[in-house]
Design a protein around this nucleic acid. Structure first.
Lengths: 246, 246
DNA sequence: GTTCCCGGTTGATCTGGGTCAAGGATGATG
DNA sequence: CATCATCCTTGACCCAGATCAACCGGGAAC
Protein backbone atom coordinates (compact mmCIF):
# COMPACT_ATOMS: atom_id res chain seq x y z
CA UNK A 1 0.00 0.00 0.00
CA UNK A 2 1.05 3.58 -0.59
CA UNK A 3 2.26 5.87 2.15
CA UNK A 4 -0.22 8.59 3.01
CA UNK A 5 0.65 11.98 4.37
CA UNK A 6 1.79 11.81 7.95
CA UNK A 7 1.85 14.54 10.48
CA UNK A 8 3.08 14.56 14.04
CA UNK A 9 1.10 16.19 16.78
CA UNK A 10 1.06 16.38 20.51
CA UNK A 11 -1.71 14.67 22.39
CA UNK A 12 -3.26 17.89 23.48
CA UNK A 13 -4.18 18.51 19.88
CA UNK A 14 -6.65 15.66 19.78
CA UNK A 15 -9.62 17.32 18.17
CA UNK A 16 -12.34 15.17 19.65
CA UNK A 17 -13.23 13.24 22.72
CA UNK A 18 -12.29 9.73 21.71
CA UNK A 19 -14.38 6.91 23.01
CA UNK A 20 -11.62 4.58 24.00
CA UNK A 21 -8.01 4.96 24.76
CA UNK A 22 -7.89 8.45 23.46
CA UNK A 23 -10.67 9.23 25.91
CA UNK A 24 -7.71 9.58 28.23
CA UNK A 25 -6.26 12.22 26.01
CA UNK A 26 -6.09 14.74 28.77
CA UNK A 27 -5.50 12.29 31.56
CA UNK A 28 -2.40 11.33 33.46
CA UNK A 29 -0.97 8.46 31.48
CA UNK A 30 -1.18 10.53 28.36
CA UNK A 31 2.17 12.08 29.07
CA UNK A 32 3.61 8.69 28.28
CA UNK A 33 2.20 8.73 24.81
CA UNK A 34 4.33 11.55 23.51
CA UNK A 35 6.35 10.34 20.63
CA UNK A 36 4.34 7.23 19.93
CA UNK A 37 1.25 9.02 18.79
CA UNK A 38 0.74 10.64 15.41
CA UNK A 39 -1.95 11.53 12.90
CA UNK A 40 -2.49 10.14 9.46
CA UNK A 41 -4.85 11.25 6.76
CA UNK A 42 -6.30 9.15 3.97
CA UNK A 43 -8.25 10.28 0.94
CA UNK A 44 -11.66 8.84 0.14
CA UNK A 45 -11.20 5.51 -1.56
CA UNK A 46 -7.68 4.95 -0.32
CA UNK A 47 -6.78 1.68 1.35
CA UNK A 48 -5.61 1.95 4.94
CA UNK A 49 -4.61 -1.67 5.53
CA UNK A 50 -4.82 -4.81 3.46
CA UNK A 51 -5.97 -8.01 5.04
CA UNK A 52 -2.89 -9.96 6.06
CA UNK A 53 -0.60 -6.94 6.21
CA UNK A 54 1.52 -6.60 9.28
CA UNK A 55 -0.03 -3.85 11.35
CA UNK A 56 2.47 -1.89 13.32
CA UNK A 57 0.00 0.55 14.74
CA UNK A 58 -3.36 0.82 16.40
CA UNK A 59 -5.50 3.91 16.48
CA UNK A 60 -8.87 5.46 16.28
CA UNK A 61 -10.79 7.38 13.68
CA UNK A 62 -10.78 11.11 14.29
CA UNK A 63 -12.94 12.18 11.36
CA UNK A 64 -14.42 10.56 8.31
CA UNK A 65 -15.61 7.03 7.79
CA UNK A 66 -13.58 3.91 7.15
CA UNK A 67 -14.85 0.47 6.25
CA UNK A 68 -13.80 -3.07 7.03
CA UNK A 69 -14.38 -5.52 4.19
CA UNK A 70 -13.79 -9.17 3.48
CA UNK A 71 -13.23 -10.41 -0.04
CA UNK A 72 -13.45 -13.80 -1.70
CA UNK A 73 -11.09 -14.92 -4.46
CA UNK A 74 -13.73 -14.38 -7.11
CA UNK A 75 -14.22 -10.80 -6.02
CA UNK A 76 -17.40 -11.02 -4.01
CA UNK A 77 -17.05 -8.63 -1.09
CA UNK A 78 -18.86 -8.11 2.17
CA UNK A 79 -18.42 -5.08 4.34
CA UNK A 80 -18.13 -6.30 7.91
CA UNK A 81 -17.89 -3.03 9.76
CA UNK A 82 -18.11 0.72 9.52
CA UNK A 83 -15.61 2.76 11.48
CA UNK A 84 -16.98 6.08 12.62
CA UNK A 85 -15.20 8.84 14.48
CA UNK A 86 -13.97 7.52 17.84
CA UNK A 87 -13.95 3.89 16.68
CA UNK A 88 -10.86 1.88 17.34
CA UNK A 89 -8.75 0.13 14.71
CA UNK A 90 -6.26 -2.60 15.36
CA UNK A 91 -5.84 -5.67 17.44
CA UNK A 92 -3.49 -5.52 20.34
CA UNK A 93 -1.64 -8.79 20.49
CA UNK A 94 -2.23 -9.65 16.85
CA UNK A 95 0.30 -9.50 14.10
CA UNK A 96 -1.66 -9.17 10.87
CA UNK A 97 -4.81 -7.38 9.91
CA UNK A 98 -7.86 -9.62 9.55
CA UNK A 99 -9.66 -7.59 6.90
CA UNK A 100 -9.16 -4.82 4.42
CA UNK A 101 -9.60 -1.37 5.89
CA UNK A 102 -10.28 1.49 3.51
CA UNK A 103 -11.25 5.13 3.74
CA UNK A 104 -14.83 5.59 2.56
CA UNK A 105 -14.65 9.34 2.94
CA UNK A 106 -11.56 11.38 3.70
CA UNK A 107 -10.28 10.05 6.98
CA UNK A 108 -8.03 11.31 9.75
CA UNK A 109 -6.68 8.65 12.04
CA UNK A 110 -5.03 9.06 15.40
CA UNK A 111 -2.41 6.33 15.56
CA UNK A 112 -0.17 4.82 18.19
CA UNK A 113 2.84 2.69 17.47
CA UNK A 114 1.78 -0.77 18.41
CA UNK A 115 4.57 -1.99 20.67
CA UNK A 116 4.61 0.97 23.03
CA UNK A 117 0.84 1.00 23.05
CA UNK A 118 0.75 -2.62 24.12
CA UNK A 119 3.29 -1.94 26.84
CA UNK A 120 1.17 0.96 28.01
CA UNK A 121 -1.81 -1.35 28.07
CA UNK A 122 0.03 -3.80 30.27
CA UNK A 123 0.69 -1.09 32.80
CA UNK A 124 -2.72 0.56 32.77
CA UNK A 125 -5.48 -1.98 33.32
CA UNK A 126 -8.33 0.37 32.69
CA UNK A 127 -7.18 0.88 29.11
CA UNK A 128 -7.34 -2.85 28.57
CA UNK A 129 -10.67 -2.79 30.32
CA UNK A 130 -12.03 -0.08 28.08
CA UNK A 131 -10.76 -1.94 25.05
CA UNK A 132 -12.57 -5.08 26.16
CA UNK A 133 -15.78 -3.13 26.49
CA UNK A 134 -15.41 -1.67 23.03
CA UNK A 135 -14.70 -5.07 21.58
CA UNK A 136 -17.80 -6.46 23.26
CA UNK A 137 -19.79 -3.60 21.74
CA UNK A 138 -18.44 -4.42 18.32
CA UNK A 139 -19.22 -8.07 18.81
CA UNK A 140 -22.81 -7.23 19.71
CA UNK A 141 -23.06 -5.02 16.68
CA UNK A 142 -21.59 -7.67 14.38
CA UNK A 143 -24.03 -10.24 15.67
CA UNK A 144 -26.92 -7.90 15.26
CA UNK A 145 -25.79 -7.40 11.70
CA UNK A 146 -25.79 -11.15 11.19
CA UNK A 147 -29.53 -11.08 11.75
CA UNK A 148 -29.85 -8.36 9.15
CA UNK A 149 -27.76 -10.28 6.62
CA UNK A 150 -29.29 -13.66 7.25
CA UNK A 151 -32.97 -12.97 7.70
CA UNK A 152 -34.09 -9.53 6.61
CA UNK A 153 -35.60 -8.59 3.25
CA UNK A 154 -33.97 -6.03 1.00
CA UNK A 155 -36.37 -3.32 2.14
CA UNK A 156 -35.76 -4.14 5.79
CA UNK A 157 -32.03 -4.12 5.21
CA UNK A 158 -32.11 -0.64 3.70
CA UNK A 159 -34.33 0.64 6.49
CA UNK A 160 -32.00 -0.89 9.08
CA UNK A 161 -29.00 0.81 7.53
CA UNK A 162 -30.74 4.18 7.31
CA UNK A 163 -31.82 3.84 10.94
CA UNK A 164 -28.28 3.14 12.03
CA UNK A 165 -26.86 6.08 10.15
CA UNK A 166 -29.57 8.37 11.47
CA UNK A 167 -28.98 7.19 15.00
CA UNK A 168 -25.25 7.68 14.63
CA UNK A 169 -25.83 11.26 13.49
CA UNK A 170 -28.20 11.74 16.40
CA UNK A 171 -25.47 10.93 18.88
CA UNK A 172 -23.22 13.51 17.24
CA UNK A 173 -25.94 16.15 17.11
CA UNK A 174 -26.82 18.20 20.15
CA UNK A 175 -30.45 17.43 20.83
CA UNK A 176 -30.10 13.83 19.76
CA UNK A 177 -32.65 11.63 18.10
CA UNK A 178 -35.97 13.20 17.33
CA UNK A 179 -38.94 12.09 15.40
CA UNK A 180 -37.75 13.89 12.28
CA UNK A 181 -34.17 13.30 11.21
CA UNK A 182 -32.03 14.79 8.46
CA UNK A 183 -28.66 13.48 7.41
CA UNK A 184 -26.33 12.78 4.51
CA UNK A 185 -25.56 9.26 3.37
CA UNK A 186 -21.83 8.75 3.76
CA UNK A 187 -21.90 5.75 1.44
CA UNK A 188 -22.35 5.17 -2.26
CA UNK A 189 -25.09 2.80 -3.40
CA UNK A 190 -22.39 0.25 -4.07
CA UNK A 191 -20.95 0.53 -0.58
CA UNK A 192 -24.43 0.18 0.87
CA UNK A 193 -24.89 -2.96 -1.22
CA UNK A 194 -21.62 -4.40 0.05
CA UNK A 195 -22.71 -3.68 3.57
CA UNK A 196 -26.14 -5.25 3.15
CA UNK A 197 -25.30 -8.25 1.02
CA UNK A 198 -27.29 -6.89 -1.91
CA UNK A 199 -26.60 -5.57 -5.39
CA UNK A 200 -26.44 -1.85 -6.01
CA UNK A 201 -29.49 -2.08 -8.27
CA UNK A 202 -31.57 -3.54 -5.48
CA UNK A 203 -30.34 -0.84 -3.11
CA UNK A 204 -31.35 1.83 -5.58
CA UNK A 205 -34.76 0.29 -6.16
CA UNK A 206 -35.53 -0.10 -2.48
CA UNK A 207 -34.49 3.46 -1.72
CA UNK A 208 -36.80 4.62 -4.48
CA UNK A 209 -39.58 2.49 -3.02
CA UNK A 210 -39.09 3.93 0.47
CA UNK A 211 -39.21 7.40 -1.07
CA UNK A 212 -42.39 6.61 -2.99
CA UNK A 213 -43.99 5.33 0.19
CA UNK A 214 -43.11 8.49 2.09
CA UNK A 215 -40.83 6.74 4.58
CA UNK A 216 -37.96 8.95 3.50
CA UNK A 217 -37.45 12.07 1.40
CA UNK A 218 -34.47 12.56 -0.85
CA UNK A 219 -32.72 15.70 -1.99
CA UNK A 220 -30.13 14.76 -4.55
CA UNK A 221 -28.77 11.28 -4.11
CA UNK A 222 -27.30 11.63 -0.68
CA UNK A 223 -29.33 14.02 1.43
CA UNK A 224 -32.02 12.16 3.37
CA UNK A 225 -34.92 13.35 5.47
CA UNK A 226 -36.80 10.90 7.62
CA UNK A 227 -40.11 12.55 8.53
CA UNK A 228 -40.99 9.90 11.12
CA UNK A 229 -38.29 7.74 12.62
CA UNK A 230 -40.81 5.33 14.11
CA UNK A 231 -42.10 4.42 10.68
CA UNK A 232 -38.56 3.81 9.49
CA UNK A 233 -37.91 1.57 12.47
CA UNK A 234 -41.03 -0.41 11.66
CA UNK A 235 -39.78 -0.88 8.13
CA UNK A 236 -36.51 -2.12 9.56
CA UNK A 237 -38.42 -5.02 11.01
CA UNK A 238 -37.65 -4.47 14.65
CA UNK A 239 -37.84 -1.80 17.27
CA UNK A 240 -34.40 -2.72 18.55
CA UNK A 241 -31.79 -0.09 19.15
CA UNK A 242 -30.04 -1.78 16.27
CA UNK A 243 -26.72 -0.04 16.56
CA UNK A 244 -24.15 -1.42 14.23
CA UNK A 245 -21.11 0.76 14.41
CA UNK A 246 -18.37 -1.77 14.59
CA UNK B 1 -36.46 -19.78 32.80
CA UNK B 2 -36.45 -22.97 34.81
CA UNK B 3 -33.75 -23.89 37.29
CA UNK B 4 -31.57 -26.73 36.06
CA UNK B 5 -29.73 -29.14 38.30
CA UNK B 6 -26.83 -27.49 40.05
CA UNK B 7 -23.85 -29.15 41.58
CA UNK B 8 -20.94 -27.69 43.44
CA UNK B 9 -17.41 -28.79 42.76
CA UNK B 10 -13.91 -27.70 43.56
CA UNK B 11 -11.83 -26.15 40.83
CA UNK B 12 -9.56 -29.11 40.59
CA UNK B 13 -12.47 -31.04 39.21
CA UNK B 14 -12.54 -29.08 36.01
CA UNK B 15 -12.64 -31.87 33.47
CA UNK B 16 -10.95 -30.10 30.61
CA UNK B 17 -8.36 -27.51 29.93
CA UNK B 18 -10.49 -24.44 29.39
CA UNK B 19 -9.34 -21.93 26.89
CA UNK B 20 -9.95 -18.81 28.89
CA UNK B 21 -10.32 -18.03 32.49
CA UNK B 22 -10.65 -21.65 33.42
CA UNK B 23 -7.33 -22.13 31.74
CA UNK B 24 -6.10 -20.96 35.11
CA UNK B 25 -7.94 -23.79 36.74
CA UNK B 26 -4.80 -25.13 38.31
CA UNK B 27 -3.07 -21.82 38.78
CA UNK B 28 -2.60 -19.59 41.78
CA UNK B 29 -5.57 -17.33 41.76
CA UNK B 30 -7.84 -20.29 41.45
CA UNK B 31 -7.89 -20.70 45.18
CA UNK B 32 -9.87 -17.52 45.28
CA UNK B 33 -12.59 -19.00 43.15
CA UNK B 34 -13.75 -21.52 45.72
CA UNK B 35 -17.33 -20.85 46.52
CA UNK B 36 -18.07 -18.72 43.49
CA UNK B 37 -17.66 -21.50 40.98
CA UNK B 38 -20.17 -24.22 40.23
CA UNK B 39 -21.37 -26.51 37.47
CA UNK B 40 -24.71 -26.51 35.75
CA UNK B 41 -26.17 -28.98 33.31
CA UNK B 42 -28.77 -28.32 30.67
CA UNK B 43 -30.65 -30.80 28.55
CA UNK B 44 -30.66 -30.56 24.77
CA UNK B 45 -33.18 -27.96 23.71
CA UNK B 46 -33.29 -26.19 27.07
CA UNK B 47 -32.84 -22.45 27.22
CA UNK B 48 -29.84 -21.25 29.19
CA UNK B 49 -30.51 -17.52 29.08
CA UNK B 50 -33.11 -15.37 27.40
CA UNK B 51 -32.09 -12.18 25.67
CA UNK B 52 -32.63 -9.34 28.08
CA UNK B 53 -32.46 -11.49 31.21
CA UNK B 54 -30.25 -10.27 33.98
CA UNK B 55 -27.18 -12.46 33.91
CA UNK B 56 -25.68 -13.03 37.30
CA UNK B 57 -22.99 -15.41 36.14
CA UNK B 58 -20.34 -15.90 33.52
CA UNK B 59 -18.85 -19.22 32.57
CA UNK B 60 -17.59 -21.52 29.94
CA UNK B 61 -18.88 -24.58 28.19
CA UNK B 62 -17.41 -27.80 29.56
CA UNK B 63 -19.15 -30.25 27.27
CA UNK B 64 -21.89 -30.14 24.67
CA UNK B 65 -22.85 -27.37 22.32
CA UNK B 66 -24.82 -24.24 23.02
CA UNK B 67 -26.08 -21.70 20.53
CA UNK B 68 -26.58 -17.94 20.52
CA UNK B 69 -29.60 -16.77 18.56
CA UNK B 70 -31.32 -13.53 17.77
CA UNK B 71 -35.03 -13.40 17.11
CA UNK B 72 -37.31 -10.87 15.43
CA UNK B 73 -40.84 -10.17 16.62
CA UNK B 74 -42.34 -12.17 13.80
CA UNK B 75 -40.32 -15.22 14.76
CA UNK B 76 -37.54 -15.14 12.20
CA UNK B 77 -34.39 -16.29 13.94
CA UNK B 78 -30.70 -16.14 13.19
CA UNK B 79 -28.10 -18.11 15.06
CA UNK B 80 -25.21 -15.76 15.72
CA UNK B 81 -22.78 -18.09 17.40
CA UNK B 82 -22.02 -21.64 18.35
CA UNK B 83 -20.50 -22.26 21.76
CA UNK B 84 -18.23 -25.26 21.83
CA UNK B 85 -16.40 -26.73 24.81
CA UNK B 86 -14.04 -24.13 26.28
CA UNK B 87 -15.99 -21.20 24.84
CA UNK B 88 -16.86 -18.39 27.18
CA UNK B 89 -20.36 -17.13 27.93
CA UNK B 90 -21.21 -13.82 29.48
CA UNK B 91 -20.20 -10.24 29.35
CA UNK B 92 -18.26 -8.83 32.24
CA UNK B 93 -19.50 -5.35 32.89
CA UNK B 94 -22.87 -5.90 31.24
CA UNK B 95 -26.16 -6.33 32.99
CA UNK B 96 -28.42 -8.16 30.57
CA UNK B 97 -27.84 -10.89 28.05
CA UNK B 98 -27.75 -9.70 24.45
CA UNK B 99 -29.11 -12.86 22.84
CA UNK B 100 -30.86 -16.09 23.63
CA UNK B 101 -28.53 -18.86 24.68
CA UNK B 102 -29.81 -22.42 24.43
CA UNK B 103 -28.39 -25.90 24.77
CA UNK B 104 -28.23 -27.55 21.35
CA UNK B 105 -27.03 -30.84 22.82
CA UNK B 106 -26.83 -31.71 26.51
CA UNK B 107 -24.53 -29.10 27.99
CA UNK B 108 -22.40 -28.80 31.10
CA UNK B 109 -21.36 -25.29 32.01
CA UNK B 110 -18.72 -24.17 34.43
CA UNK B 111 -20.09 -20.98 35.99
CA UNK B 112 -18.77 -18.20 38.17
CA UNK B 113 -20.89 -15.76 40.04
CA UNK B 114 -20.54 -12.54 38.17
CA UNK B 115 -19.67 -10.01 40.84
CA UNK B 116 -16.78 -11.93 42.39
CA UNK B 117 -15.56 -12.86 38.96
CA UNK B 118 -15.45 -9.22 37.94
CA UNK B 119 -13.60 -8.32 41.11
CA UNK B 120 -11.14 -11.09 40.41
CA UNK B 121 -10.71 -9.68 36.92
CA UNK B 122 -9.89 -6.27 38.32
CA UNK B 123 -7.10 -7.74 40.40
CA UNK B 124 -5.63 -10.10 37.80
CA UNK B 125 -4.92 -8.26 34.57
CA UNK B 126 -3.98 -11.30 32.56
CA UNK B 127 -7.49 -12.70 32.94
CA UNK B 128 -8.86 -9.50 31.46
CA UNK B 129 -6.19 -9.79 28.84
CA UNK B 130 -7.14 -13.34 27.96
CA UNK B 131 -10.77 -12.33 27.81
CA UNK B 132 -9.94 -9.54 25.38
CA UNK B 133 -8.15 -11.99 23.17
CA UNK B 134 -11.06 -14.39 23.18
CA UNK B 135 -13.45 -11.58 22.38
CA UNK B 136 -11.28 -10.50 19.47
CA UNK B 137 -11.34 -14.10 18.22
CA UNK B 138 -15.11 -14.15 18.41
CA UNK B 139 -15.29 -10.84 16.62
CA UNK B 140 -13.13 -12.18 13.80
CA UNK B 141 -15.30 -15.27 13.61
CA UNK B 142 -18.51 -13.26 13.57
CA UNK B 143 -17.19 -11.07 10.78
CA UNK B 144 -16.10 -14.06 8.80
CA UNK B 145 -19.61 -15.40 9.19
CA UNK B 146 -20.99 -12.13 7.86
CA UNK B 147 -19.29 -12.92 4.57
CA UNK B 148 -20.94 -16.34 4.57
CA UNK B 149 -24.36 -14.89 5.30
CA UNK B 150 -24.13 -11.96 2.95
CA UNK B 151 -22.42 -13.33 -0.11
CA UNK B 152 -22.26 -17.10 -0.29
CA UNK B 153 -24.66 -19.41 -2.11
CA UNK B 154 -26.60 -22.10 -0.28
CA UNK B 155 -24.16 -24.78 -1.38
CA UNK B 156 -21.19 -22.71 -0.26
CA UNK B 157 -22.86 -22.02 3.05
CA UNK B 158 -23.38 -25.71 3.75
CA UNK B 159 -19.82 -26.51 2.74
CA UNK B 160 -18.53 -23.70 4.97
CA UNK B 161 -20.44 -25.05 7.94
CA UNK B 162 -19.28 -28.61 7.37
CA UNK B 163 -15.71 -27.39 7.06
CA UNK B 164 -15.97 -25.54 10.35
CA UNK B 165 -17.41 -28.50 12.19
CA UNK B 166 -14.79 -30.81 10.72
CA UNK B 167 -12.04 -28.45 11.71
CA UNK B 168 -13.41 -28.12 15.21
CA UNK B 169 -13.40 -31.91 15.55
CA UNK B 170 -9.89 -31.98 14.18
CA UNK B 171 -8.65 -29.77 16.98
CA UNK B 172 -10.21 -32.13 19.50
CA UNK B 173 -8.88 -35.25 17.81
CA UNK B 174 -5.30 -36.37 18.30
CA UNK B 175 -3.80 -36.36 14.85
CA UNK B 176 -5.67 -33.27 13.78
CA UNK B 177 -7.00 -32.39 10.37
CA UNK B 178 -6.28 -34.88 7.65
CA UNK B 179 -7.41 -35.19 4.11
CA UNK B 180 -10.19 -37.56 5.11
CA UNK B 181 -12.42 -36.53 7.98
CA UNK B 182 -15.25 -38.27 9.80
CA UNK B 183 -17.58 -36.59 12.27
CA UNK B 184 -21.14 -36.32 13.54
CA UNK B 185 -23.27 -33.28 12.88
CA UNK B 186 -24.17 -31.79 16.25
CA UNK B 187 -27.02 -29.79 14.71
CA UNK B 188 -30.42 -30.58 13.27
CA UNK B 189 -31.18 -29.43 9.76
CA UNK B 190 -33.26 -26.67 11.24
CA UNK B 191 -30.43 -25.44 13.45
CA UNK B 192 -28.12 -25.50 10.45
CA UNK B 193 -30.69 -23.45 8.56
CA UNK B 194 -30.87 -20.91 11.37
CA UNK B 195 -27.13 -20.68 11.39
CA UNK B 196 -26.83 -20.23 7.65
CA UNK B 197 -29.78 -17.95 6.98
CA UNK B 198 -31.54 -20.64 4.93
CA UNK B 199 -34.63 -22.82 5.23
CA UNK B 200 -34.33 -26.38 6.42
CA UNK B 201 -35.55 -27.65 3.04
CA UNK B 202 -32.70 -25.89 1.28
CA UNK B 203 -30.24 -27.30 3.80
CA UNK B 204 -31.55 -30.78 3.16
CA UNK B 205 -31.43 -30.38 -0.60
CA UNK B 206 -27.89 -29.02 -0.61
CA UNK B 207 -26.64 -31.76 1.65
CA UNK B 208 -28.19 -34.28 -0.73
CA UNK B 209 -26.52 -32.52 -3.63
CA UNK B 210 -23.10 -32.59 -1.96
CA UNK B 211 -23.63 -36.28 -1.31
CA UNK B 212 -24.62 -36.94 -4.91
CA UNK B 213 -21.50 -35.12 -6.08
CA UNK B 214 -19.28 -37.20 -3.84
CA UNK B 215 -18.10 -34.26 -1.75
CA UNK B 216 -19.43 -35.95 1.37
CA UNK B 217 -20.76 -39.36 2.37
CA UNK B 218 -23.63 -39.82 4.79
CA UNK B 219 -24.43 -42.62 7.14
CA UNK B 220 -27.81 -41.99 8.65
CA UNK B 221 -28.66 -38.32 8.90
CA UNK B 222 -25.88 -37.16 11.12
CA UNK B 223 -22.72 -39.17 10.51
CA UNK B 224 -20.57 -37.49 7.87
CA UNK B 225 -17.47 -38.62 6.02
CA UNK B 226 -15.51 -36.12 3.99
CA UNK B 227 -13.25 -38.12 1.68
CA UNK B 228 -11.27 -35.08 0.59
CA UNK B 229 -11.24 -31.96 2.73
CA UNK B 230 -9.67 -29.90 -0.03
CA UNK B 231 -12.65 -30.47 -2.27
CA UNK B 232 -14.98 -29.46 0.53
CA UNK B 233 -12.99 -26.28 1.06
CA UNK B 234 -13.26 -25.49 -2.61
CA UNK B 235 -17.00 -25.89 -2.39
CA UNK B 236 -16.99 -23.52 0.55
CA UNK B 237 -15.79 -20.84 -1.82
CA UNK B 238 -12.53 -19.98 -0.14
CA UNK B 239 -9.42 -21.61 1.14
CA UNK B 240 -9.53 -19.52 4.28
CA UNK B 241 -9.18 -21.12 7.66
CA UNK B 242 -12.79 -20.05 8.04
CA UNK B 243 -13.11 -20.72 11.71
CA UNK B 244 -16.39 -19.63 13.13
CA UNK B 245 -16.62 -20.90 16.64
CA UNK B 246 -17.81 -17.89 18.55
C1' DG C 1 -20.15 25.91 -23.93
C1' DT C 2 -19.31 20.56 -25.08
C1' DT C 3 -17.69 16.18 -23.71
C1' DC C 4 -16.83 12.68 -20.68
C1' DC C 5 -17.31 10.10 -16.62
C1' DC C 6 -19.14 8.31 -12.70
C1' DG C 7 -22.72 7.32 -9.68
C1' DG C 8 -27.37 6.45 -9.87
C1' DT C 9 -31.96 4.95 -11.80
C1' DT C 10 -35.09 2.07 -14.16
C1' DG C 11 -36.70 -1.73 -17.10
C1' DA C 12 -36.84 -6.69 -18.70
C1' DT C 13 -35.79 -11.11 -17.73
C1' DC C 14 -33.87 -15.02 -15.19
C1' DT C 15 -33.07 -18.00 -11.25
C1' DG C 16 -31.75 -19.52 -6.52
C1' DG C 17 -33.88 -20.39 -2.82
C1' DG C 18 -38.37 -19.88 -0.35
C1' DT C 19 -43.01 -21.87 0.26
C1' DC C 20 -46.36 -25.35 0.37
C1' DA C 21 -47.28 -30.08 0.45
C1' DA C 22 -46.71 -35.00 0.54
C1' DG C 23 -44.34 -38.81 2.17
C1' DG C 24 -40.24 -41.60 4.51
C1' DA C 25 -37.09 -43.17 8.25
C1' DT C 26 -35.98 -43.80 12.96
C1' DG C 27 -36.66 -44.22 17.62
C1' DA C 28 -39.53 -43.74 21.85
C1' DT C 29 -43.83 -45.32 24.18
C1' DG C 30 -47.56 -48.12 25.49
C1' DC D 1 -45.96 -55.29 18.05
C1' DA D 2 -48.47 -50.95 16.57
C1' DT D 3 -48.59 -46.04 17.30
C1' DC D 4 -46.83 -41.74 17.37
C1' DA D 5 -43.68 -38.01 17.14
C1' DT D 6 -39.61 -36.03 15.27
C1' DC D 7 -36.63 -35.17 11.99
C1' DC D 8 -35.64 -35.48 7.34
C1' DT D 9 -36.32 -35.80 2.19
C1' DT D 10 -38.26 -34.73 -2.16
C1' DG D 11 -41.36 -32.59 -5.49
C1' DA D 12 -43.97 -28.62 -7.63
C1' DC D 13 -44.42 -24.02 -7.88
C1' DC D 14 -43.48 -19.12 -6.99
C1' DC D 15 -41.24 -14.85 -6.04
C1' DA D 16 -37.56 -11.64 -4.28
C1' DG D 17 -33.64 -10.26 -5.73
C1' DA D 18 -29.78 -10.99 -9.21
C1' DT D 19 -28.41 -10.10 -13.81
C1' DC D 20 -28.12 -7.72 -18.09
C1' DA D 21 -28.84 -3.55 -20.33
C1' DA D 22 -30.17 1.11 -21.41
C1' DC D 23 -30.30 5.62 -19.88
C1' DC D 24 -30.01 9.89 -16.73
C1' DG D 25 -27.79 13.90 -14.45
C1' DG D 26 -24.40 16.57 -12.51
C1' DG D 27 -19.78 17.91 -12.05
C1' DA D 28 -14.95 18.09 -13.80
C1' DA D 29 -11.87 18.75 -17.83
C1' DC D 30 -11.22 20.66 -22.11
Amino acid sequence: MNAPALSQARCGDCPIRHRAVCARCNADELEELDGIKYYRTYEAGQPIIWSGDVMNFVGSVVSGIASLTQTMEDGRTQMVGLLLPSDFVGRPGREGAAYDVAATTDVVMCCFRKKPFEELMERTPHIAHRLLEMTLDELDAAREWMLVLGRKTAREKIASLLAIIARRDATLTPGGATNRMVFDLPLTREAMADYLGLTLETVSRQISALKKDGIIELEGKRHVTVPDMRRLMEEAGDDSDGGFLG
